[in-house]
Design a protein around this nucleic acid. Sequence first.
DNA 1: TAGATTGTTAATCGATTAACAATC
DNA 2: TAGATTGTTAATCGATTAACAATC
Lengths: 211, 211
Amino acid sequence: MKIRRVPDVVIRRLPLYLRVLDEIDTDLSPIISSQELGERSGVTSGQIRKDLSFFGVFGKQGVGYSTVTLRAELRRILSLHQEIYVGLVGVGNLGQAFIRYGVSQSKKALPNEGLRMVAAFDRDERKIGQQVAGVPIYSVQHLPGIIEKLRISIIILTVPATAAQAMFDRCVESGVKAFLNFAPVKLAIPEGIRVHHADVTLELESLAYYS
Amino acid sequence: MKIRRVPDVVIRRLPLYLRVLDEIDTDLSPIISSQELGERSGVTSGQIRKDLSFFGVFGKQGVGYSTVTLRAELRRILSLHQEIYVGLVGVGNLGQAFIRYGVSQSKKALPNEGLRMVAAFDRDERKIGQQVAGVPIYSVQHLPGIIEKLRISIIILTVPATAAQAMFDRCVESGVKAFLNFAPVKLAIPEGIRVHHADVTLELESLAYYS
DNA sequence: TAGATTGTTAATCGATTAACAATC
DNA sequence: TAGATTGTTAATCGATTAACAATC
């Protein structure tokens, strides 16, 4: 029941707060102030209170926030209270690394906040049918069916630049609305679809300015 | 000779423009308008003109920009007209993937804009002395010396979260001013040091909101 | 010259910060 | 109650967009 659209900058800070809360022993610290949460996440206390106010009232004046409650609320806001199924397209070096990375993360005490990598896709016949860290590799031809069947709602794109738009389009047609794109291309993105870019080359090139 | 500090959002758009110019055949298109550059990089024409105005005057009124000249100017602004040496700390799955990725990129016709991965560092004795895609792996103990000797000015951090701050500090002491950090931690960053974060977990968690 | 497009200024928009009344 | 801290409003800051004079 959002009253007005929440700015993306706000959404992007929520996982930061959640991470701090996950690191906290809730028995030792049942309550946290916006002040302390701010210091530990690198955000001002006022900003945290402003951010949270987009979603409701979670604190007690004069007291602070219940660590357990705030954590649960943040999870709910981000939809991380339920399992979110993640797929990956393009099982090259980078793709394999992320599969292993994602799986190793979820073996931690804290189960990586409900995100679960359940399928990978590739074009290469030799890879299809194999597994990487327990995640099965399917043919991109079967992508629509598998996405639907496994209820995949986020796709990590680690295909070569030349294949990115086509694979992206196919995922969109299959109903995926959220993407993390590592391919160094500007995708044509339809209304209502969310793409976060993680373009290592662009990052390095802008860093060169500061080096 | 910067008159005023250039906003980071502006710096981050420059590689985007550069990429478009790299894709253009400068013989076929010796001139480009801010209009067309905008369409191809996903930015408004006014914004492009505004961005460029931070650095000087590069176009001709009534005509447009010389593709060759603008490309050269952007490279110079970003320091990509010279070789920029990049190092990587943490040769795990992700680290190896980036080494291979970086190397394959620089084999393209366009030599990845002057960025060159020249060294990797790890703690694991078994990895030290080996190579990944031709890039030698050194001990983190020798990091300061190698960074100085090879003139490394950008570091990619792909170490586990627990090691990130210590490795970061060591690089800073060795004179590195620009970092691309993949470790899921909030680093304590000294004045004058630039860190771009590429935190896949945070990206996925915020994407969950839109899924 | 007439038409086109830049460089730049002014207006708008949106996000952050400051401040404080409400209230636990 | 007195002290603390939230939730929220108003002020500030900075970035984007609109618009147009300058000029090629």
